[in-house]
Write a protein that binds this DNA or RNA. Structure first.
Length: 823
RNA sequence: GCGAAAGUGGCGGAACUGGUAGACGCGCAGGACUUAGGAUCCUGUGGGGCAACCCGUCCGGGUUCGAGUCCCGGCUUUCGCACCA
């Protein structure tokens, strides 16, 4: 990268000096409070939200800035359209990320985070975002996390928070538990270490209670499809039946222990269920194991327990293994006794932890049956005539086939058979229709230091007590020794002076809960806090909330599709149900932005190809940098950052600058130019709401090219609206040019230029002429010309007429676009 | 394996509900102005052909007057989910 010769503001014949212009306007915005929204009095409120950043030591990265700029352009546009736009900013500063970094550099997070935030503030100001700094928040501020703790208590009160000893994901590197959503392919999403299974007392939120609603609302909220699909998959609804298999009937067992409940989505295949499989952790494994099989079964159970989740769940190691328990169950459809096995491919955490195995129609069961020589029956066939064709692989199609070898159900289609067989079994008391979700309850406790303490006190007399609301916040103490250890107990537990506290009920000495809550709880409600940051006696003011929420436009990365975005929806629903807010979906519109790569490759510190925004802004200016980021490609798809490309955008801004400054005030504007102007106004105004920023910029570039063609100087009426069009993208230069056009006040209070369709209409339009579908030329005609008129005009063109070798068999005329002559 | 999206010049990318493929920009080539240019301005730029023209949107079929766009089959890439019963 080379430095362009810096020009003074005085020498402006070829361009402008972004540093001077941008500094001037950033200072003026600050002094005149241009970017502050009047939250109480402002008309037509419009809340534009961007995912608040984690204030890392490295500073703002390109992905942040890409998202923020895209959001800012949308917000500025809405403001120009007459809305009061609230564009707040905050910092997601709690969490393992910060804590691990603090440990690494050996600086306390209480010192580190304010420093990082200060750097972020500087960078965000320099980027020219229309941020309302009056409502800045940080999740680490006791004034904020007081209410994070309050939300916990709301859930606790409603029975939606509970503590349970459970198998949890434990990261041995970060030394903490992880939510299921934070485990990727059996590894910690943060450090990549293989996650272990541990049994610990943990706090959970009953998000599964909300699974149906979280799923159903996806049908009507205006979100990116990719995000909705990701949430649907994560919630993972599957409809099926629970079927009861009686066991050891020969021994006369009729107790509950004598029954195995299995979950299946393929009740239609029950005539092909030739064995059962229990998860090794299943409580019935022990009672069902016969003496003869005990040693082998115990060994297998123990082996599985030792195995870490990565290996167990990994696709590579999916060699099916299992052991026969020695017991049999009765297939309720056939009445036959079928063997009961245990195998680690059945997971205790899903369904009932037990399955009926149908090797003929399930790949996993087929593989298992093949390995252990269990019978494989065909009960579904492509059609009746193939009923006796042996299966070489599982036939798992659950739509196309028909039933065979299934007694009175033979010949039914699979969907029909599902209904009929479930009903038949239900009548006999051995089945019921059931819906299962993959979604698990949200484990929110973390055995770490850097988070909001969970507001609970344990008393030997009174048991578990919620910290009374008047005692909130429970302040996170400033302790020097916050390194987590391998015990699974929070570092706060080592600080007796903090955790010793009187019981709020009886006053005797109790002890505090020493776990802190998950960072994702902090970020699951921050948008509710923004409009109400000045109130300390309530989490969100009812008036303000009614006026500003739900969020009108939310923009963020799709990496949060199942974490932050799902949790936010859940917390919002809970607060709605508790009567605190009158809406149940937090974000009216959400759009996922794309990713920025560099020279076709992913950016990463290890590759050393990270774009540092500061450097580019210093050299090219924030306006050029913003506009370039938006010009790279479709906002929702991201783009490829190439260093050379930014010069084109800077050139565009320079040409804009010169054109506006050289404008003439006398005479009349050119009708042709005005036509292009209004076409551009329409195009940009259409493109911005759809986030098609790259094409909006292209249209403005094309218009500047029109203005600069030939020797003429542009008229004021031709350039002034262009300054308004550019302003959401390049706010500083727009303000400067607005002022230099003799206007007073901010361009952002000047409104959006009016579009006049009559001015945009062309007098003559170009119609493509095809002969037999091949384009042979164009004709210039009036827009309302008839088909015959267009045909006559085409035939008058010798270059076209020569292809018309006979009388036209057919003529197709698409008005204003195309004429096709078929001969 | 399942699900979603996408394959267009040397490159990033345009093309609304099927209607002039390649807008806009980068790069490149030539020219102007210059002591100079990695500044600025002008011109050209999908491939082939002297030309008339021909060929071109991952590959192969199809529907249509007309297909980058729709349908069928295949290939490739990216991103989710992944022994979920």
């Amino acid at each position: 990268m080379t430095l362009t010769t810096s020009r003074s503001v005085a020498d402006e014949s070829a361009g402008y000096d972004p540093a001077a212009v941008e500094e001037k306007w950033q200072a003026r915005w600050e002094a005149q409070r241009t970017n502050r929204a009047d939250l109480d009095g402002g008309p037509r409120p419009h809340f534009v939200l961007m995912m608040f950043p984690y204030p890392s030591a490295e500073g703002l990265h390109i992905g942040n800035l890409f998202a923020f700029t895209g959001n800012d352009i949308y917000g500025r546009f809405q403001r120009l359209r007459g809305h009061t736009v609230f564009e707040p900013i905050g910092f997601d500063a709690f969490g393992i990320h910060s804590e691990n970094y603090a440990l690494k550099v050996n600086v306390h997070p209480l010192e580190l985070i304010p420093r990082n935030i200060e750097n972020f503030r500087r960078q965000l100001r320099r980027a020219g975002l229309m941020l309302d700094w009056d409502h800045e928040l940080s999740t680490t501020d006791p004034r904020y996390y007081k209410w994070t703790q309050w939300i916990f208590l709301q859930l606790l009160d409603r029975g939606l928070a509970y503590k349970q000893r459970a198998a949890v994901n434990w990261c041995p590197f970060d030394k903490t538990v992880l939510a299921n959503e934070q485990v990727i392919n059996g590894a910690c999403e943060r450090c990549g270490t293989a996650v272990e299974q541990r049994f610990l007392e943990q706090w959970f939120f009953r998000i599964t209670d909300y699974a149906p609603r979280l799923l159903e609302n996806l049908d009507w909220i205006d979100w990116s499809d990719s995000t909705k699909t990701a949430q649907r998959n994560w919630i993972g609804k599957s409809e099926g039946a629970e079927i009861i298999f009686r066991v050891n009937e020969d021994r006369g067992s009729r107790t509950e222990e004598g029954a195995i409940r299995v979950f299946t989505t393929r009740a239609d295949t029950i005539f092909g269920a030739t064995y059962l499989v229990l998860a090794p952790e299943h409580p019935l494994v022990r009672p069902l194991t016969t003496e003869a099989r005990r040693a082998e079964v115990d060994a297998y159970v123990e082996r599985t327990a030792r195995q870490d989740l990565t290996t167990r769940k990994s696709v590579q190691a999916r060699q099916k293994t299992g052991v026969f328990t020695g017991s049999f169950a009765k297939n309720p459809a056939t009445g036959e006794a079928i063997p009961i096995w245990i195998a680690d491919y059945v997971l205790m955490e899903y369904g009932t932890g037990a399955i009926m195995a149908v090797p003929g129609h399930d790949e996993r069961d087929f593989e298992f049956a093949t390995t252990y020589g269990l019978p494989i029956l065909r009960v579904v066939a492509e059609d009746i005539s193939r009923a006796e064709v042996p299966l070489e692989a599982a036939y798992a199609d659950d739509e196309g086939g028909v039933l065979v070898h299934s007694a009175q159900f033979d010949g039914l289609t699979v969907p029909e058979a599902k209904r009929r067989i479930i009903a038949w079994l239900e009548a006999a008391g051995s089945a019921k229709p059931v819906v299962h979700y993959r979604l698990h309850d949200w484990c929110i406790s973390r055995q770490r230091y850097w988070g909001p303490p969970i507001p609970i006190i344990y008393c030997d007399e009174c048991g578990m007590q919620a910290v009374p609301e008047k005692d909130l916040p429970v302040i996170l103490p400033n302790v020097r020794d916050f390194r987590p250890d391998d015990t699974g107990i929070s570092p706060l537990a080592r600080h007796e002076e903090w955790y010793r506290v009187p019981c709020p009920e009886c006053g005797k000495m109790g002890r505090r809960e020493t776990d802190v809550s998950d960072t994702f709880l902090d970020s699951a409600w921050y948008f509710l806090r923004y409009p109400s940051t000045e109130f300390d006696d309530r989490p969100f003011d009812p008036e303000r909330t009614r006026k500003w929420l739900p969020v009108a436009s939310y923009i963020g990365g799709n990496e949060h599709a199942v974490l932050h975005l799902l949790y936010s929806r859940f917390i919002t629903m809970v607060l709605h149900d508790l009567g605190h807010i009158d809406f149940e979906e937090p974000f009216k519109r959400f759009r996922a932005h794309g990713m920025i790569v560099r020279e076709g490759a992913k950016m990463s510190k290890s590759r050393g190809n990270v774009v540092v925004p500061d450097e580019y802004i210093r050299e090219w200016g924030a306006d050029a940098f913003r506009t370039y980021l938006m010009f790279l490609g479709p906002f929702e798809e991201g783009g490829d950052f190439r260093d050379q490309g930014i010069s084109g955008v800077k050139r565009f801004l320079d040409r804009l600058w010169v054109t506006v400054l050289e404008r003439r005030e006398d005479g009349e504007p050119d009708a042709n130019v005005m036509r292009k102007l209004h076409q551009t106004i329409r195009k940009v105004g259409d493109d911005i709401p759809r986030l098609s920023y790259n094409t909006a910029i292209a249209a403005m570039m094309a218009y500047v090219n029109v203005l600069r063609a030939g020797e003429r100087r542009a008229h004021r009426a031709e350039v002034e609206p262009l300054v308004q069009l550019v302003s959401p993208f390049a706010p500083h230069i727009a303000e400067e040019l607005w002022e230099r056009s003799g206007r007073t006040g901010s361009v952002f209070d000047a409104g959006w230029p009016a579009f006049d369709a009559s001015l945009a209409a062309e007098e003559l339009i170009t119609v493509a002429v095809q002969v037999n579908g091949k384009t042979r030329g164009t004709i210039q005609v009036t827009p309302n010309i008839s088909q015959d008129g267009a045909l006559a005009a085409a035939m008058a063109d010798p270059g076209i007429a020569k292809f018309v070798t006979g009388p036209p068999k057919r003529v197709i005329y698409v008005p204003g676009r195309l004429l096709n002559i078929v001969v």
